[in-house]
């Protein structure tokens, strides 16, 4: 699936909850609780993206012309969002990743989490994912 198709799939999943925040957040929390997203050996200081409040770990790999990400966070809602972002971007070419607009976060009503004041490290994570894609491409 293309990045856009995965984004549409996620938007479809969240449409089920409508405006009802609890279901939406429970879904995010469940995503966050599901399997560890990153190999513990990659949870090192140099893989840490520091938000002011929650930490995010990101590991990027380049295989067969595509970039693969694994990531984790110490806050569960952040981790759920991290999982969604990894699902959208991982397994695509560097060019596709660099062009991704990531509009799904706004469309599922979670844009607030990308506000600089959330201090959860998500903006920095997306930026780092794109920088890694650019670096690995070379």
């Amino acid at each position: 699936m293309s990045i856009e198709e995965i984004e549409k799939e996620i938007i479809g999943e969240f449409e089920l909850f409508g405006d009802e925040w609890e279901g939406k957040y429970e879904h995010l929390i469940d995503l966050g609780k599901s399997l560890p997203l990153i190999d513990p050996k990659h949870k090192t200081e140099d893989k840490t993206i520091k938000g002011c409040q929650s930490k995010v770990w990101l590991h990027s790999e380049f295989r067969e012309g595509k970039v693969f990400y694994t990531a984790d966070s110490d806050a569960i809602i952040t981790k759920g969002l991290v999982g969604l972002i990894v699902r959208v971007l991982s397994g695509h070419t560097a060019d596709e990743i660099l062009e991704a607009k990531m509009e799904f976060i706004d469309k599922i009503g979670l844009k607030d989490h990308l506000s600089p004041t959330r201090a959860n490290g998500l903006i920095s994570m997306i930026k780092q994912m794109k920088l890694d894609a650019l670096a690995l491409k070379k």
Binding site: W21, E22, Y25, C52, Q53, S54, D74, A75, I76, I77, T78, A119, N120
Partner: peptide, 21 residues
Amino acid sequence: LHPLDIGTILDQVGIAVRTGH
């Protein structure tokens, strides 16, 4: 529980608190 998660849920019910260091 992570303080940020608690603050996020409280925000959903209209309660403004501060979380973090």
